[in-house]
Design a protein around this nucleic acid. Structure first.
Length: 480
RNA sequence: GCGCCCAUCGACUAGAGGCCUAGGUCGUCAGCCUUUCACGCUGAAAACACGGGUUCGAAUCCCGUUGGGCGCACCA
């Protein structure tokens, strides 16, 4: 593939939060740009005033930054093709609509939204395809002037050829053919003067010199309209690559109501950006071999559109969790402490002693998929009397061998020189020797006495973190 | 309804006519490791939607069927 002047864009509309599908689209765009030494442009598509959401742009930017995706041009960093917010480019779209009007490639439509809606319903009722009947396309000059003089609001529609077909090549799907007779006379300019997506994205992609349009498959059917517009304007179209959709468990387009779809949701739950990126990168793309763990930098080297699949991919949170656990466990201890800290404090755990906090986190690392999971295990190290529930467990602690172990434990623990995991374990070995109790009979009562749980991290570590006094007191509490 | 697109284990996927007794990963199950659990390790079950072609030979090419998705807004 030619590498000169590769320019791609990610063009979200700020209607709320960044969708994970959007994240993947942004990722693939950035990867493609980096791979080919090109530029990644971020463009805000906010031409729908009615869907404006306060703070959505800021949120979008901060989320992309969190994910580690950097753009070369955009509303924040600027660039030679700005402005990068469509609502600030209205004049440009209007001028181009005027040009099409002047050249007879578009026409004014005075039909009101209500009329159109009624017409649509009528057609649906008659089981016909809901298409615009093009009545305003036949308007005479006189009729047009009359309506304009009357101050009737109008939209600008593109004049789609009545017959024939159009073909274009998609980088992931190959040649695609669309017949003109199924394409509506698409509205290009709304009556409020703002452009529709179709006009704005073509005009902007051209003026921003976008070489490759990498976007979701939901745009595939309307790409024909875009190709036609390029033709109308006499511009060379960019290359298109339509990515397979991200799907719910039931294989419908990934949406809310069926789990989290906002990147922010995952961020708040404690997923690491590295894990999300790695996971989402593999939804529709693969390196061609068995590797699965990829950093952003590695992806930038490996990515290619040729290896993007065509079929939709189900967003499987289970695998995302696995990735997150992998990345969490690979983290340096200090980083993990930092990440888990807020969750621990929120759960009421005292993290003022750095060494102790670090030990607690380290002992629990293997139990974590999400950093918040740590709160479920903190009880092991917090004060208070231990309540052993369950008949079997209670019997185990009350049994003679256990009592022997406890007695000896208390004796030795009081004299143990340094209270560390290793030496505590050695001490337990000594207890085994002294009492003759071993294996499960030895360890389980101790574990129960200290934590009331049958499972958990290394006993020596737990005792160390509990501290000598607390450990002894808990064992004493079980003495009969 | 019409149009476009898609179709390999439950999920993500490898596979570009013989290398396929269909490979890897998540999940599931079993074993090992461990005082226990978790982590880790080893192994197992698990898929080419169906029907026709083409070919000496098809998961791979063609056609059809079925299934699924998306689109058909003065939303993007």
């Amino acid at each position: 593939m030619s590498t000169e002047n590769i320019r791609v864009r990610f063009a979200p509309s700020p209607t709320g939060f960044l969708h994970v599908g959007g994240l993947r689209t942004a990722l693939y765009n950035v990867l493609f740009a980096r791979k080919h030494g090109g530029s990644a442009v971020l463009r805000i598509e906010d031409t729908d005033r009615s869907r404006y959401v306060e703070g959505a742009v800021e949120n979008l930017l901060s989320t992309l930054e969190w994910a580690g995706l950097r753009f070369d041009e955009g509303p924040e960093q600027g660039g030679a093709s700005g402005p990068y917010v469509q609502s600030e480019r209205s004049d440009l779209y209007r001028a181009h609509a005027e040009q099409l009007l002047a050249e007879g490639k578009a026409y004014r439509c005075f039909c009101s939204p209500d009329e159109l809606a009624a017409s649509r319903e009528r057609q649906l009722a008659e089981k016909k395809d809901p298409t615009y009947d093009r009545r305003c396309r036949m308007l005479s000059e006189a009729e047009i002037s009359e309506k304009r003089d009357a101050g009737l609001p109008f939209t600008v529609r593109m004049k789609v050829p009545l017959a024939g077909q159009l073909q274009f090549r998609d980088l992931v799907r190959g040649d695609i053919t669309v017949h003109y007779d199924v394409i509506d006379d698409q509205v290009l300019l709304k009556s409020d003067g703002y452009p529709t997506y179709h006009l704005a994205n073509v005009v902007d992609d051209h003026h921003m010199q976008i070489s490759h349009v990498i976007r979701g498959e939901e745009w595939l059917p309307s790409t024909a309209k875009h190709m036609l517009l390029y033709e109308f304007f006499g511009w060379a179209p960019p290359q298109f690559a339509h990515l397979p959709l991200l799907l719910n468990q039931d294989r419908s387009k990934l949406s809310k109501r069926q789990g989290d779809v906002a990147v922010e949701d995952y961020r708040e739950k404690g997923y690491l950006p590295e894990a999300l990126i790695n996971f989402v990168a593999l939804l529709g793309w693969n390196p061609g071999d068995d590797r699965e763990m990829f950093t952003l930098a590695e992806l930038e080297k490996e990515f290619s559109l040729e290896r993007v699949g065509k079929a939709g991919a189900v967003f499987d949170v289970e695998k995302l969790k696995w990735f997150n656990g992998q990345y969490l466990r690979a983290l340096p201890a200090e980083d993990l402490v930092e990440i888990c800290g807020p969750w621990m404090r929120e759960a009421g755990f005292d993290t003022t002693d750095p060494a102790r906090t670090r030990s607690v986190v380290s002992s629990l690392t293997n139990y974590l998929t999400l950093p918040s999971d740590i709160t479920e295990h903190l009880g092991l190290f917090t004060g208070g009397p231990v309540h052993i529930t369950g008949e079997e467990a209670q019997n185990l602690v009350a049994d003679a061998p256990a009592q022997q172990v406890f007695t000896r434990f208390v004796e030795l623990a009081a004299e143990l020189e340094d209270w560390r995991g290793e030496s505590i374990k050695a001490m337990i070995k000594a207890i085994q020797k002294d009492t003759g109790v071993k294996g499960k009979q030895l360890f389980m009562p101790l574990r129960l006495a200290l934590t009331a749980e049958e499972h958990g991290p290394d006993l020596g570590m737990i005792a160390e973190l509990l501290g000598r006094d607390e450990t002894i007191s808990r064992i004493r509490a079980q003495l009969r």
